[in-house]
Design a binder for these strands. Structure first.
Lengths: 329, 329
DNA sequence: TTGTAAGCGTTATCAG
DNA sequence: CTGATAACGCTTACAA
């Protein structure tokens, strides 16, 4: 490994001078600068970030904590975060928490041990002591503790929107899938949906689910059809659940959207490739990731912040699992 | 931040002794150990990994370089890597390369600057100078330079398998989607498929594609149907492409699998949730990630290695886009 | 069994 | 404008 010392020797200057030129700090004569730059190039030198980090007590590293990257909603988030961080030369230490508080704790712990300058976390425990005592900025994704910076979509409004649209299109015996109880955004969606359904004076049924995993999602679809076979509209807790419902509906010979409409949540990329295409409430995951990264960067750099809560809009994406709306609305 | 010095002071010993107990190295009297352990607990001390890394010239970090985490095949890989690394207390610095050599170079560069002890890379440029000059172990994913450790599935065999199965099930006018030219595994699949089709004495058509992106994939599906509308079997370059073909086939009123069979590649999790379910050649992505991580750990720890090339089996997953096979095979 | 001190590669202070 | 040097927090000879 070539160090600043090697460069200094080759250029015939002190390490201090080399440091000055690579950091563009302080005065250094044009000639000396050139000598140093040549030495740097010749030795293909690049500074050891670890040594820097030790001295400055801060790195160019950011911690990213997600429940499960294998869950299709998160890769887009991650990509958004990464792209934005990349622009500012920050790197990501990444971990899956599986919504387990202990795992989160462990990760945050090692983040700190590695001098990360900030963390982005999609957690169910934003009020955990883990975060309270953190001396570096945290941006929460999809969670909105009042006092902490966060980026989120309006889940409640998403739920309302889903209900309104499915009702507008004629569903009357609606089943709402209530996502895992410990996942706040899932509950928000659920409550929003219930709210709108009630407002319309309709009744509804609920299927309770306990995870977003591919393995389980078929079970709930089954449960839905065996319990509420006469349902003519399903508001799913996310697109994966919606896919499972669609799959099962088609399997048992229901026509979608004629016999049953389905609305998902998230608008994961493959939703448009289903047949029929999945109507869904879109959350702009990639953008959310970018925004979270941008916000964190500002926090880290102590730049002025207009608003520490960034809410991104949800929107209804009309595809094939809902009927065309009547012109009279 | 509490340091080893604080602990030493509180325990009334030297930093060396503290170091000994937290690293369980060298002799330390039971009584002293207890004092130190209490101080550690009381101060909630955990060692600064950056300082460690600087001294030892190696961290507990490994670099993971993937083309694009937003592409559904990779999250599973990533998850496999992460889970395995986690077990050994390694952390991941993660980057998306977009199959761009320069981006890769930049990432590898910063990996090194951060003292990572190894890297896992899914790259199209395994022979690039980037990797040749690396002094830390690299495990390639999905690429198999002869001399370097790698984990991969047998793409060629996968291609053969796809062709055999689709032919066995009666397709005669087969169209093969040839993935992006610069992506080796895609070409392997393609060649394997061609090989088996030729062997069967059949003709075939080719649709050339240039990316695996969600945005483009619909275009090739369109192209396929407009150019080769009489095709009765499609071997797609991956599941996303297959989904697009299925989608388009259904849209224009073709019956799948009756009029046209489709076989994908990868077996991404949502493949089973399509309607009909997507028949595909499975690559065990999660396992590949785990294996790569396991292999890298051995390399890093200089443990003996049986085989530096780990090939995982591909298999045909029969679902609804292929017909049931005749009992006579 | 324990402590002292050098060293890991940088940056920043301070003197020249 | 440049160079010595202390310091960042830790590990490890080496000495005691």
């Amino acid at each position: 490994m070539t160090t600043i010392k090697d460069v200094a020797n080759l250029a015939g200057v002190s390490v201090a001078t080399v440091s000055r030129v690579i950091n563009e700090r302080g005065y250094v004569h044009a000639d000396t600068r050139k000598k140093v730059e040549e030495a740097v190039k010749q030795l293909n030198f690049s500074p050891n970030e670890v040594a820097r980090s030790l001295y400055k007590r801060k790195s160019k590293l950011i911690g990213l904590l997600l429940p499960d990257i294998a869950n299709p909603y998160f890769p887009q988030l991650a990509r958004g975060v990464e792209d934005r961080m990349q622009e500012q030369e920050f790197r990501l230490i990444f971990g899956n928490s599986d919504e387990d508080e202990q795992k989160e704790k462990d990760y945050i712990q090692t983040f700190i041990q590695n001098n990360v300058v900030g963390v982005i976390s999609s957690t169910n425990y934003p009020h955990s002591s883990i975060y309270e005592n953190l001396k570096i900025p945290v941006v929460f994704l999809d969670r909105t503790p009042l006092d902490s910076p966060s980026v989120f979509a309006d889940g409640r409004e998403g739920g309302r929107l889903a209900a309104r649209e499915i009702i507008k299109r004629g569903s009357r015996r609606i089943t709402v899938m209530q996502g895992p109880a410990h996942i706040k955004p899932a509950q928000d969606r659920f409550e929003g949906a219930i709210e709108s359904i009630r407002q319309a004076g309709l009744d509804y049924r609920v299927i309770q689910t306990t995870s977003f995993s591919f393995n389980d999602v078929g079970l709930w679809a089954d449960e839905l059809f065996s319990k509420y076979g006469d349902t003519d509209g399903v508001i799913a807790s996310n697109d994966i659940a919606a896919m499972a419902v669609l799959h099962e509906a088609l399997r048992i010979g229901k026509k979608v959207p004629e016999d049953m409409q389905i609305i998902g949540f998230d608008d994961i990329p493959m939703s448009s490739l289903l047949s029929p295409g999945l109507s869904t409430i879109r959350q702009p995951a990639y953008e959310m990731g970018r925004e979270a990264a941008g916000l964190l960067i500002k926090l880290v750099e102590q730049a002025p912040i207009e608003n520490k809560h960034i809410q991104l809009p949800v929107s209804f994406i009309e595809r094939g699992t809902t009927r065309k709306v009547n012109s009279d609305g």
